[in-house]
């Protein structure tokens, strides 16, 4: 138990460091890598918090796909962030206010890990108790994901589908115009 807390704490400190580094490092390749590391660390915490499925996904997505995508984009756009002369005061103020509001909101949240919290006494116990009876699956998360809240998951696939369609809309090029572009480019060069 105490070991868990220590691991948790160390991971969290690393997370915070990574996060702050993301803000200050100006080499965007490094930032993309840092964000991948952030996701990996986050995935580790998820494991500690018993969310293995989530951890798996976060690792695959955050550390894997997102990072690849970012690197791909950086290859196109270049990797230096310019020094911005934006004043940090207003954003800082907003962030502090939002954070303070949230901390205020956590004041009377149930104690961490309390098995009698409303979250653990309403709805969820029914999943744990009945999943096997209803679906015959040991992995409750899969059962809830695909059956009890299968409609959410349909929506989730819809989101992914939307993203695919969106990217296609934005970036797919006509073959003909491609050639035209190349032509005009070569004309420019000559």
């Amino acid at each position: 138990m105490s070991l868990e807390i220590y691991i948790d704490l160390i991971l969290v400190i690393f997370l915070a460091i990574t996060g702050i580094a993301v803000i200050y490092v100006r080499n965007l390749f490094a930032v993309a890598m840092l964000s991948g590391i952030y996701s990996l660390l986050m995935a580790s915490i998820f494991v500690v918090l018993d969310a293995v499925d989530v951890a798996f996904t976060e690792a695959a997505v955050g550390a894997g796909i997102s990072t690849i995508l970012m690197l791909g984009v950086l290859a196109i756009t270049g990797n230096r962030e310019k020094v911005s002369n934006k004043s940090p005061i207003l954003p800082l103020l907003i962030v502090i206010c939002t954070g303070a509001l949230l901390v205020y909101g956590t004041w009377d949240l149930p104690i961490f890990g309390d098995p009698n919290a409303p979250v653990h006494t309403h709805v969820a116990p029914e999943y744990i108790a009945n999943t096997y009876k209803h679906t015959g699956m040991p992995n409750i998360v899969t059962a809830v994901l695909a059956s009890y809240r299968g409609y959410d998951t349909l929506g989730e696939v819809g989101v992914i589908f939307t993203a695919g369609v969106g990217v296609l809309l934005l970036l797919s090029r006509r073959k003909t115009t491609n050639k035209l572009n190349q032509k005009s480019k070569s004309e420019d060069q000559s």
Binding site: V54, T57, S66, L69, V123, A124, I128, V144, G166
Partner: peptide, 27 residues
């Protein structure tokens, strides 16, 4: 509790979808 896990699985997917669309816009 499995329910938050399920929700977050969905949310992660939504997040990566947003990211990829955002990156496409950046390009």
């Amino acid at each position: 509790n499995p329910l938050p896990h399920v929700l977050i699985l969905t949310a992660i997917v939504v997040g990566v979808a947003t990211t990829s669309l955002g990156l496409a816009l950046v390009v």
